[in-house]
Amino acid sequence: MNVAVEVAVRVVLVFAAFLLFPLVVGYMEHKAMAHMQGRLGPMYAGGFHGWAQLVADGVKFAQKEDIVPADADRTVFKLAPWIALLPYLLVLVVVPVGPGGLVGSDVDAGLFYALAVMSVGVVGAVMAGYASANKFALLGGIRVAAQLMAYELPLVLSAVSAAMAAGTLSLGGIVGAWRPWWLAWQLLALVVFLVAGVAELRRPPFDMPVADSEIIFGPYTEYTGLRFALFLLAEYAGIVVVSALATVLFLGGWKGPVLDAQLGWLWTCVKVLFVAFVVIWLRVSFPRLREDQLQRFAWMGLVPLALAQLLLTAIVKVAIS
């Protein structure tokens, strides 16, 4: 009985975080992006600085007509948004928030679990691109697939570097082993991980697959209403997940300047939001990379860097053990 209650509480908490954090990040994007462009962003919905804008957007999406194109592959078309969204929920389950088991579920190979499930989300976008029966969506789908293949490798390699340094694949274990000087040691891996993570989310400046000025909205071109909202939610949930993983792997998770045991969850939240802010910041600051630049950057830039970091990690690891 006790176990069942505990599991229920954990599930509810993870679900609440899954619903809340993407909205917070979405709102932060509205606001940060607006101010970076000399605007104010939403100001009216909800009264105080438009805090309820995304809620209002959700209501709007829910009211929209539900359209499936005539030639679309209906089942796949309807399934795609869920495939794109749910993996991120499943990843959140293993992200440790605080010390002492403050985690949805502590998986032994948590790192591989997270990376594996995250990569499934991309299948959703590819499915959407194929099922829409639209040439722009198809192009977008192809680009999504190509981008995933290019950036999955540096992502995994840089994450593995952190696991190697900590000597464990468990996310909680990695945080436990983390020391502040790892920031310098794993800096390269952190950068590669963030860049590859942003690319995997198809966020600007790596948003060639959904480049709205060229191919409308890539795989999501034919989507409206709630399904479109699900894709958008998936994007923000993806930011949360990538930020959370970067926090856990490279920024020491719940370890803060003071009171790790009591305020651990707060440090985690602060760090996650900071990384999410950096992701938004990148979006505003840099222009979109061209498709060939994207591929070249991944294969000739990130992969060698990640390998170099692995080498460095191994050398230091052997030297200190």
Partner: peptide
Amino acid sequence: ELVAWVQVLIYVGAVVVLLLFGIML
């Protein structure tokens, strides 16, 4: 456990996406 997650990571995340890429291309 490890084999399971590697299976998902490599086969679902990469090989199937590669297949889909090939088909769509």
